[in-house]
């Protein structure tokens, strides 16, 4: 069971990463943590979208092939998210959290 004192506070990892970015002292190490956090954030977002997306699909009469429907469903509501992701990506790149190469890779991934 998660201890009560742990709940409702910012995390050490996230706070350290944010502080380093704000203070402009993000070094290779803290940068790596921040990069990792950001990547996880994107993964999480993607996971949420995938989790959220199939629900309306299941509600429709066609229930035969949920797996491909899930794949198709993700981009359907993803227009705004795509833009937001690209914007975030641009910010991370500008802040130096993502290298040019990583930025290009991530952008290519988002644009699919």
């Amino acid at each position: 069971m998660i201890g009560r004192a742990r709940i409702g506070r910012g995390g050490l990892i996230g706070t350290a990463a944010r502080t380093a970015v704000i203070a402009g002292t993000a070094t290779a190490t803290t940068g790596a943590v921040a990069r990792h956090q950001q990547r996880k954030m994107y993964d999480q977002q993607a996971a949420y979208e995938q989790q959220a997306a199939p629900q309306p699909v299941y509600a429709e009469p066609v229930q035969a092939a949920p797996a491909p429907a899930q794949v198709e469903a993700a981009p359907a509501g993803g227009g705004d998210d795509l833009y937001a992701q690209l914007q975030q990506l641009g910010q991370l790149h500008a802040q130096g959290i993502l290298s040019d190469e990583e930025f290009a890779q991530a952008k290519a991934k988002i644009l699919g």
Binding site: I2, A5, R6, G11, I13, G14
Partner: peptide, 15 residues
């Protein structure tokens, strides 16, 4: 000793 790591950290690790 203190519970410095928060739930947010726990989740970051769990990921």
């Amino acid at each position: 000793g203190a519970q410095l790591a928060s739930e947010e950290d726990v989740e970051a690790v769990a990921e």
